[in-house]
Simulated scan of single mutants.
Amino acid sequence: MIQQIHTTDVAIVGAGPVGLFAVFELGMLKMRTAVIDVLDAIGGQCAALYPEKPIYDIPGYPKVMAYDLVEKLAEQAAPFDPSYYLGQRVERLERGSDGLWRLTTSSGATIQAKAVVIAGGVGAFGPNRPPLPGLEGYEASGAVQYMVPKPEVFRDKRLVIAGGGDSALDWALNLAPLARSVALVHRRAKFRAAPDSVARLQALTADPAKDVDLVVPYQLHGLEGDGRSLSAVVVRDLEGRERRLEADVLLPFYGLSMNLGPIAEWGLDLERSHIQVDPQSCATSVSGVFAIGDIATYPGKLKLILCGFSEAAMAAHAIHALVHPGEALHWEYSTTKGVPGDNLQGSAA
């Protein structure tokens, strides 16, 4: 059987917000795209880890929920008809004698393109799991979870949240109005979260009308239940003293375990597990391969979604010459050019 090869102009590795915006920027310059992501849905960390968490630093949106931002970016990319290859990882990146890049995925798909944009965020990622006996059974039943896709499922549940960073405190605050009770476990009294979040949490714990408990300095020690349904979480302090916290669900927020995966073998110049790029074009050390978003690094780099959006635009302009060699790039504002299927109502100044 002959293997099917999908041919496009640019292959984008990563379907997070920056990868989705790259579809738009490349499309505006008349370049077709294929997008590959290891997750089963678009949106990257925004969709997988905190879909209902508010984001405050997107221009034009004083506040936007992560999932809503992903939906808008997908809608913005849709007129350019990108091909999505989801639930599969790029295993190999090779350049053929014809100059085209060939990307082979874990599902056996092959995409060939004139340029490659790596928008893989932090690379392959997964939650840091607490070393507790019997953890797998509780994970399988949903009694232990590492993300909050829909807060409503935790209504009237007894929650134990573990961690001392922004994710742990944010979800303790957001879930407290829904849950029957919330206990936040952290190994020390000092938190690595926004001061405002810490103050709000302390106010909640001091309110006798709220069943919110701050359990410090303690660490997770064990799980009680039948192997699937959770009844309690056992915690222990440094002196060996134990507490038993009644619980239906444990939410450990210990950050992500991140690695570049196969990207590390592609011959790119790396710096501390990030890809070094030219800040003017986002070109990597390998001709025809670009990197944008959190995975890219250069002097003065800021890890902000809005900076990733800017990098997507710069990379698209640099890639144009590779996809359309010899063709002059006559730049037009989006307000005068429009997008496919759009009827212009005005013009740029």
Rank of each mutant, 00 (worst) to 15 (best):
G346Q: 11
L256F: 00
G27H: 08
D37V: 14
A183Y: 05
W171E: 10
L245G: 02
P177W: 04
E224W: 10
G308A: 13
G142A: 09
L322G: 12
G44L: 07
F154L: 08
L260C: 11
A41V: 09
L268Y: 08
G267Y: 04
A47H: 08
L201R: 04
F290S: 10
L39C: 11
Q145P: 02
A78L: 08
L159C: 12
L223N: 01
A209F: 01
L220Y: 03
A34V: 08
C46G: 00
G134M: 09
R32T: 12
E246K: 02
G96Y: 01
A232N: 01
L256H: 00
D98A: 04
L302C: 00
T335I: 06
D196Y: 13
G19F: 07
Y61M: 10
V212L: 02
L270K: 03
A321F: 08
F191M: 15
I42S: 11
A349E: 05
A283V: 10
G137N: 09
T284V: 02
H317D: 04
L251P: 01
G165T: 03
E224M: 15
F309Q: 15
G255K: 13
S281N: 13
P279T: 08
L29E: 09
Y146K: 13
I58H: 06
S167K: 09
L245C: 10
V23E: 01
I295V: 13
G227I: 07
A283E: 13
T297Q: 06
K301L: 00
V198H: 01
A189I: 06
L238I: 12
D68I: 05
V148G: 02
Y67S: 15
L204S: 02
A179F: 01
A66W: 06
A203C: 06
G96T: 05
S310W: 00
C282F: 07
R187N: 08
D9Y: 14
Q3W: 08
L214A: 02
A113Q: 13
S334M: 08
G137I: 05
T33F: 06
P51G: 12
L344P: 04
P325Q: 06
V198W: 00
M314N: 12
A312Y: 03
W171T: 14
T104Y: 05
V35G: 10
A22D: 03
D196R: 15
F191P: 00
L69D: 03
G165K: 10
Q88T: 09
I2H: 09
P262R: 15
